[in-house]
Amino acid sequence: MKFFVPAAKDDIKAEQVYSALAQSLKAPITEKRIWKLQWCDREIDMECEVGKPLPSFYQTGKELVLAIFECENFYKICTLSRGGIKGEPILTGKNSQSSATYFSDNINN
């Protein structure tokens, strides 16, 4: 899967939005970017993917995941109301129960 940000009309805009989100959330901008994330929250298996809604557990409705950032010990999952234009992102631990799938390209392509 090629890197994208939902609603960004081209690659340049996608980079701008991604960078702005990272800066706002104090998240690192890395070469490898997460497309899909699997984790366990309160013993419930969860999965999210950029461009698709979060599991109903998080009560964000049909809001799409805008970006997933990999931080030192956790991940930050961003939707419009959770880290996008307001609110805090969803945080999930980076551990043996979490698994990230990356976009097939990177910022150097």
Rank of each mutant, 00 (worst) to 15 (best):
P55Q: 07
Q59Y: 12
K62F: 12
Y18C: 02
K36A: 13
F74D: 13
I44K: 13
I107N: 15
Y58S: 08
G61E: 04
T79P: 00
T101K: 04
S99I: 09
D10T: 12
T79E: 01
E70P: 00
C71L: 04
T60M: 12
E88Q: 13
F74A: 10
W35V: 08
G51H: 06
Q38H: 12
L66C: 04
P6E: 08
K2V: 09
N95H: 03
S81R: 04
S19A: 15
P53R: 03
L37N: 07
T92C: 03
K94W: 05
Q59D: 15
A20Y: 09
E49D: 07
Q97P: 01
S98A: 04
E43F: 13
F57A: 01
T79F: 01
E63F: 05
E63W: 02
D11K: 14
S104H: 14
F74Y: 13
L25G: 07
G93L: 10
S19N: 13
N73D: 14
A27H: 02
L64W: 01
T92Q: 00
E43Q: 15
A8N: 07
W35P: 03
K13I: 14
K36I: 10
K2Q: 15
P89L: 02
G93E: 10
E88L: 13
L37S: 05
F4W: 07
R33T: 10
M1D: 14
L54T: 10
S99K: 14
N73Y: 06
E63L: 08
C48Q: 05
N95I: 03
C40L: 12
L80Q: 11
L54K: 02
F57N: 05
Q23E: 14
N73P: 03
P6L: 10
P28T: 08
K76P: 01
Q38S: 12
K52S: 09
F4D: 06
C78I: 06
S96Y: 10
K94C: 08
I29C: 14
A20K: 15
K62R: 14
C71E: 03
